[in-house]
Amino acid sequence: MGEVHVSAQDEEVRAGPGDDIVVRLPENATTGYRWHVESLDGGLEVVADDYAPPGEILPGAGGTRVLRLRPAEAGEARLELVLQQPWGDDVADRYALRVTVE
């Protein structure tokens, strides 16, 4: 089992059976805006959803949202995330990732 690391610039990734896909996106918890899964299909499963604070703790400093996905089967899958406050409808950003599991 390996890891495939994905950043905010990636839109497509290839993974093998048993690989974990690790998505890292910038997030600033102090604003209330947080990445949320809007859509997940094609046999992908979220096995971890964590927030990593910044290395140096400063007021208003942003950290990183780290999602760990695991494909259950070969084929095409898609992940769609939105950056929004849980109590509001305003979407600050969107992120989509297409995954091909070979």
Rank of each mutant, 00 (worst) to 15 (best):
Arg94Gly: 05
Gly42Thr: 05
Pro59His: 11
Gly75Asp: 12
Asp49Phe: 01
Gly18Ala: 12
Pro59Glu: 14
Leu97Phe: 08
Gln9Glu: 15
Trp35Arg: 02
Gly2Ile: 01
Asp49Trp: 04
Arg14Val: 09
His36Gly: 01
Gly32Thr: 03
Asp89Thr: 11
Asp41Gly: 13
Arg98Ser: 07
Asp93Gly: 14
Ala48Asn: 13
Tyr33Lys: 05
Arg98Cys: 05
Gln84Arg: 15
Arg24Asn: 08
Gly88Met: 08
Val66Phe: 00
Ala15Tyr: 02
Ala48His: 10
Glu73Ile: 02
Asp50Trp: 08
Asp89Lys: 08
Asp90Ile: 11
Val46Trp: 13
Val4Asn: 04
Ile21Glu: 00
Gly2Arg: 07
Leu67Thr: 00
Gly60Ile: 09
Val101Ile: 08
Arg78Lys: 13
Ala72Arg: 09
Gly88Arg: 10
Leu44Ile: 05
Val4Trp: 02
Glu102Ile: 10
Pro86Asn: 09
Ala8Thr: 08
Gly62Pro: 04
Val47Ser: 09
Leu83Thr: 00
Gly88Asp: 12
Glu73Met: 07
Glu3Ile: 08
Trp87Gln: 11
Leu67Phe: 02
Glu45Cys: 12
Val6Cys: 06
Asp41Asn: 15
Thr31Gly: 05
Gln84Ala: 13
Val37Pro: 04
Val47Gln: 06
Val13Ala: 11
His5Met: 13
Met1Gln: 10
Arg24Gln: 14
Pro26Ala: 10
Ser7Cys: 14
Pro54His: 03
Ala72Trp: 13
His5Pro: 09
Thr30Met: 11
Pro86Met: 06
Val37Ile: 12
Glu38Asn: 15
Asp19Met: 01
Thr31Lys: 06
Tyr33Asp: 02
Leu67His: 01
Asp93Glu: 14
Thr30Pro: 07
Trp35Asp: 00
Val46His: 06
Asp20Pro: 01
Pro71Met: 04
Val91Tyr: 14
Arg94Val: 09
Leu83Ala: 02
Val6Thr: 03
Val23Glu: 01
Asp89Ile: 10
Ala92Tyr: 01
Ala96Asp: 10
Thr64Met: 09
Ile21Thr: 01
Asp41Leu: 12
Gly18Met: 10
Glu80Ser: 10
His36Arg: 11
Gly16Tyr: 14
Arg34Lys: 11
Arg78Ala: 05
